[in-house]
């Protein structure tokens, strides 16, 4: 097959599957949260019904808003969230299907992923400021604080991975997702390095809810406190766009964690191709296994933390990320750095 055809098929299937799984993920998340609180909870398809209803409702644009920013922000958030998901998923799918070509070797740059993670949040902030409501202005300011606080641990993690990749696979680009997927970070690690990776993973356990705006880091959208914060003035289809963007972004962030920390596929673990009845079913098995890993990470880092904690104050969030999570991730980084020297001793 032509490289461009493969690429297009992967992008389109990621987008369709991402929208479907993102909304399904919201339903599963609400169901799990309800089970934790010994409730029955909404049906798993609730996310789809909410979205359809919002699309059919009237969309109000407030009189004192900056109209073009107010209308543009949801679209920007939706498009960049979709881009983030595609940008993380396509290199990983290439790795899973074993399709190798020089055109894709440099695909999926971590630094670009960090910036793509920021853009939907910045679109939310811009939309909140432009709405002309004091509540959404407060929400935007809080979102910016969370955004800046999570930046340092995220950057440290990415640099730690690049350092490790430059040791593991010197011939491949260090900042590429494809490299990280084909060389699991746990390979060739001493005890110190493994401890370091565990520290980085535990830092990510709190970065995921902060990036996706879930409890305990949902100060920007605190519904009982500041009336849904930066979404306060959004209604109808713009709200639906933001919800879809949030669903896609959650899926993207969780997929990033899976790709970074647990990229091993079925064929790596079982050691060979999976063949059932003469048909090679490796690729479907790999995708099922990937979805299993995504759902485990999703339910632990989003649902479980969401039901077991209360919303923090915004000052506590910045302190938590700037002191504790940064310290944990920098320690992990240092442990990964000195690991080869400890091993050599």
């Amino acid at each position: 097959m032509n490289e461009l055809t493969v690429f297009l098929i992967m992008v389109i299937s990621t987008l369709i599957g991402g929208i479907y799984l993102g909304l399904l993920g919201r339903g599963i998340d609400r169901k799990i949260a309800a089970k934790f609180q010994s409730r029955i909870g909404p049906p798993i398809r609730q996310g789809f019904w909410d979205l359809k209803k919002l699309m059919l409702k009237q969309t109000i644009v407030p009189e004192n808003s900056i109209t073009w920013v107010f209308k543009g922000a949801p679209l920007v958030a939706l498009v960049t969230s979709a881009m983030l998901l595609v940008y993380i998923m396509v290199p990983y799918l290439l790795y899973l299907t074993g399709y190798e070509s020089p055109m894709f070797a440099h695909m999926g740059d971590f630094i670009l992923v960090i910036y793509l993670l920021m853009i939907p949040a910045i679109a939310l902030v811009a939309g909140g400021f432009s709405a002309g409501s004091p509540l959404s202005t407060i929400g935007s300011q809080r979102e910016m604080v969370v955004l800046m606080a999570t930046e340092l641990p995220l950057a440290v993690t990415v640099i730690a991975f690049a350092v490790k990749m430059s040791v593991l696979a010197p011939s491949m680009p260090s900042f590429s997702i494809f490299t990280a997927a084909s060389n699991p970070v746990w390979n060739g690690m001493g005890p110190a390095g493994i401890l370091g990776v565990i520290l980085l993973a535990s830092a990510f356990l709190f970065i995921i809810p902060a990036e996706t705006g879930k409890i305990p880091f949902d100060q920007a959208e605190a519904e009982t406190e500041i009336a849904e914060g930066l979404l306060a003035e959004y209604s109808g289809k713009y709200l639906a766009f933001f919800q879809l963007a949030e669903a896609l972004k959650s899926l993207g962030v969780v997929a990033l964690v899976v790709v970074l920390f647990f990229p091993q596929g079925v064929s790596t673990i079982m050691g060979g191709q999976m063949i059932a009845g003469g048909i090679n079913i490796t690729v479907p098995c790999e995708i099922m296994f990937f979805l299993l890993k995504v759902s485990v990470v999703y339910s632990v880092s989003i649902s479980f933390i969401r039901v077991s904690m209360a919303r923090l104050k915004i000052s506590q969030v910045s302190k938590f990320f700037i002191y504790s999570v940064s310290a944990v991730s920098i320690t992990g980084f240092i442990l990964i750095m000195i690991d080869p020297r400890i091993m050599a001793m």
Binding site: A34, R39, I40, G41, P42, P43, Q46, W49, D50, I60, L135, A222, E223, T224, I226, A227, E228, L231, A232, E233, Y234, S235, L239
Partner: peptide, 11 residues
């Protein structure tokens, strides 16, 4: 369980 949710803003 019926999809009823309390929201924070009239919008």
């Amino acid at each position: 369980r019926f999809g009823i949710k309390l929201v924070g803003t009239p919008r």
